[in-house]
């Protein structure tokens, strides 16, 4: 005899489950196992994983590292921000602070870089437009992501973690040059990279 959910059942309610109900539970269980397996499988086979090289960093140290990075590889300025063109395979440092991403970075299509993200003050959000790649930027932590840009173009870095009253003003830029381009030599002489596309 069936009861509703507001009537107290007899003390022993541990009864045999109907066949069709059991079938659904097993189907759902099997699907849950697929959901679980996909994540390790993608770590082995897929190209997009939020693993990264992660360690703690003092915000002042990170700021100094960014300054050094800019000094070594600066090739121009864009809207007052330094434009930096690190060689393929190198470490790239991107600093988030209220309310700017520093510097503007110029990368080469198909090359691998390690992109280090950290914040000098509060939480920020790295959101690469128009690709929709999103990472959390936490003060005190260096998130080193190995990236391989697969298409040339101009990309913007929006902030998508609320970081204060100027949150919506915080936009940076990453430029990816085509793999067959001859960017290195001419780029070194350009003082404003704002217009190049």
């Amino acid at each position: 005899m069936y009861r509703t959910g507001i009537e107290p059942p007899e003390r022993v309610w541990w009864k045999k489950v109907g066949r069709h109900e059991k079938v659904w539970v097993w189907i759902a269980f099997a699907w849950c196992m697929v959901l679980f397996a996909m994540m390790p499988v993608w770590h082995l086979r897929g190209g997009q994983n939020p693993s990264g090289i992660r360690h703690r960093v003092d915000p002042a140290d990170f700021q100094a590292r960014v300054a050094e990075f800019v000094r070594e590889h600066q090739v121009g300025t864009d809207n007052g921000l330094p434009v930096v063109a690190p060689p393929p395979g190198s470490d790239v440092y991107l600093q988030a602070s209220q309310f700017a991403w520093i510097p503007v970075v110029r990368l080469r299509q198909g090359a691998e870089y390690t992109l280090h993200l950290s914040s000098l003050d509060v939480n920020h959000g790295f959101a690469l437009y128009p690709l929709n790649i999103n990472f959390q930027v936490v003060p005190g932590y260096d998130y080193g992501l190995r990236i391989v840009p697969n298409e040339p173009g101009e990309f913007y870095v929006m902030c998508n973690e609320f970081c204060g009253i100027g949150h919506h003003l915080m936009v940076g830029k990453i430029i990816v040059e085509p793999a067959d381009g001859t960017a290195d030599a001419p780029a070194a002489g350009v003082s404003t990279a704002g217009g190049d596309r």
Partner: peptide
């Protein structure tokens, strides 16, 4: 959101920002 539109954002027109995606 699939276009990458951020949550918690006052103005996705970025009218006063340094760059205007």
């Amino acid at each position: 959101g699939t276009f990458g539109v951020p949550r918690r954002h006052w103005d996705i027109g970025f009218t006063q920002a340094l760059f205007q995606p």
